[in-house]
């Protein structure tokens, strides 16, 4: 059973308090060290953008939060309740409070779009078909894809799949939404719609968002705070403006998309 402390955590967090907390978290895959004593506070009702080069562990961070991966050492807290030691069964009520947009969408191939979006609703025990139909229609409209309920994921383009996955992630109006590259593969206009949606969810429904992205336009638009990961550690943290004016060369190169001399060495050898 869930720890009583976790049950008590249903009350809303005071503004600015950390809804998710990483304490000295380390994670490695074989010889590859992904995180080395990482500590991070994620405030409630805000959007945190996590950026960093490919392979630095941004998606791993999201998976650690919902227990899809377990840390090798360190502690992870949600609403002050330690969750990295909970069993799969004990994690279920916690996971129901999250929405997760996967990098490649992760839509269920054997289900229609409508069934995909309705999956979390049915999973939470909602039986009314009329209510489910309404919610599915509403969420698909939000991402600009109304009327495709009967299509199969295989019939959709990459961008459409991503938007259906986003509709599924927000179907249950979760408390926290984890966005893994929400605008990758979308045209600039549709990307902006997704950015506006992230802002709207935060402002109207007080949804805490954690956005992993390489899209700097999107990052600066949606972020209350930005953290940059490199070599298993956070090398910069601040508001959009603070990151934009950061003097750290590694951060500057990343946000302006400039390769270092070292990165270009191989090219010069050609």
């Amino acid at each position: 059973m869930l720890d009583p402390v976790c049950k008590a955590a249903d009350e809303r967090m005071p503004e600015g308090a950390a809804i998710i907390r990483f304490e000295n978290v380390s994670k490695r895959f074989g010889p590859l060290v992904v995180f080395n004593n990482l500590s991070l506070d994620i405030p409630a009702d805000e959007t945190l953008v996590v950026m960093g080069p490919s392979g630095v562990g941004k998606s791993v961070l999201l998976k650690l939060i919902v227990g899809l991966l377990r840390p090798d050492s360190g502690e992870i807290y949600f609403h002050g309740c330690r969750i990295d030691t909970l069993s799969e069964g004990e994690l279920e009520p916690i996971r129901k409070r999250f929405g997760f947009l996967f990098q490649m969408g992760a839509l269920f191939d054997s289900m229609t779009v409508g069934e995909n979006v309705s999956f979390p609703l049915r999973q939470q025990g909602i039986r009314s078909d009329a209510h489910i139909r309404d919610v599915v229609h509403e969420k698909l409209s939000v991402v600009g894809l109304e009327g495709i309920e009967q299509k199969m994921p295989g019939d959709l383009s990459g961008g459409q799949r991503k938007r259906v996955a986003l509709a599924r992630a927000i179907a249950m109006n979760p408390e926290v939404v984890l966005y893994d590259e929400p605008t990758t593969g979308l045209d600039p206009i549709r990307s902006d719609v997704i950015n506006e949606l992230i802002l709207k969810l935060k402002e109207e429904l007080k949804v805490t968002g954690i956005v992993v992205t390489h899209d700097m336009t999107s990052a600066f638009k949606v972020a209350d705070h930005i953290v940059m990961l490199l070599d298993g550690k956070i090398i910069a943290r601040g508001t959009s403006d603070e990151i934009r004016t950061c003097k750290d060369e590694r951060v500057c190169r990343f946000i302006h998309g400039r390769a270092s001399e070292e990165d270009l060495k191989a090219l010069h050898r050609m």
């Binding site: 009520p93 996971r95 129901k96 999250f98 996967f102 490649m104 992760a106 269920f108 979390p120």
Partner: peptide, 19 residues
Amino acid sequence: ELGTMKVTEQVDALRAMAA
């Protein structure tokens, strides 16, 4: 089918939705 679901993160998506 299950292997493909695993490598395309569909199994993770199920777990993330408490299934």
